[in-house]
């Protein structure tokens, strides 16, 4: 039996400060184990969707509902959503000077374990876990000692995001442009990492412009997202078609 993980119903949301509406009547259901890809033209508000789902304070929900594993997401703080199992691989991971990567990761893991009433990992347990995971992403122990994202190349940042995915073991991973700025080797590392984590219990929402990542991860559903809602749903064939003919036909049809 399929199990609903995320259910978005008639969602309206916008920028908190200006009141500008960006998401306008979005519907999307993601069941456990499914992979969904959201594609769409620049400026359609794809990243906004990822921020609204994860509770970034710059955005405000003005209508509709978001439910995740029996929780009303709108009532939860960003860290609570994270601890319940929503992970966002960010398009541009921010630098945090002074905080080493491994110290950051230890805080993150233990904060989530604490929220879920699991015992916190001590330094030795954590380092063992971290080192074995880091190998898969070609991340050296030297890199783990550097300040998080500070002076990291684009590829290093993205690899670190996926390392976090594999450490935090979320139920739903949102990959926002996880493939941008990656060379072929790095893309392979990222997609292998995602595929390794991906099981029948957990789900993926991939936001992208490119087919490269989708060809490696193979989505069950491909959605075209424009003007704040999904205007067309298909499978990988739809993505392939977009690659050749672009969004224009669908955008015109939606008008």
């Amino acid at each position: 039996m399929t199990q609903k993980l995320l259910e978005i119903k008639d969602l309206y949301a916008g920028v908190a400060e200006s009141g500008k509406e960006i998401i306008k009547g979005l519907n999307l259901t993601i069941n456990a184990g499914e992979t969904h890809a959201v594609m769409g033209p620049n400026g359609a508000g794809k990243s906004t969707l990822s921020y609204v789902l994860t509770g970034k304070p710059d955005y405000v929900v003005t209508g509709g509902s978001m439910r995740f594993a029996e929780h009303d997401l709108t009532a939860l703080k960003p860290e609570e959503r994270a601890a319940l199992g929503i992970f966002l691989s960010m398009q541009a991971p921010v630098e945090i000077p002074g905080v080493t990567t491994q110290n950051f990761l230890k805080h993150a893991i233990n904060a989530q374990r604490k929220y879920n009433n699991l015992p916190e990992l001590d330094a030795a347990e954590f380092l063992k876990l971290l080192r074995s995971a880091a190998k898969n992403f070609d991340i050296s122990s030297e890199m783990l000692k550097r300040e998080i994202n500070v002076g990291f190349s684009g590829g290093e940042k993205k690899r670190l995001e996926i390392l976090q995915l594999s450490l935090l073991q979320p139920k739903l991973a949102i990959l926002d442009e996880a493939d941008s700025g990656l060379d072929i080797d790095a893309l392979k590392i990222v997609s292998q990492g995602v595929n390794q984590w991906h099981t029948k219990e957990n789900s993926l929402l991939i936001i992208t412009h490119h087919l490269d990542l989708l060809r490696q991860i193979k989505p069950d559903f491909v959605h075209i997202y424009a003007d704040g809602k999904i205007i067309k749903t298909g499978d990988m064939a739809l993505a392939e078609e977009l690659e050749t003919s672009g969004y224009k036909n669908y955008l015109d049809a939606a008008k």
Binding site: T54, G55, K56, P57, D58, K77, P78, E79, A82, A83, F87, L88, M90, P93, V94, I96, P97, G98, V99, T100, N103, F104, H107, A108, I109, A111, Q112, Y115, E147, Q164, L168
Partner: peptide
């Protein structure tokens, strides 16, 4: 920055703990 705090929160770290983490790093 708000971006730094959100990044921490998205990984499960509460806002106050995030501030502590960043400040301790700074010092």
């Amino acid at each position: 920055s708000a971006e730094q705090l959100f990044y921490c929160q998205q990984r499960g770290i509460k806002e106050e703990e995030a501030v502590g983490l960043i400040v301790n790093g700074f010092c």
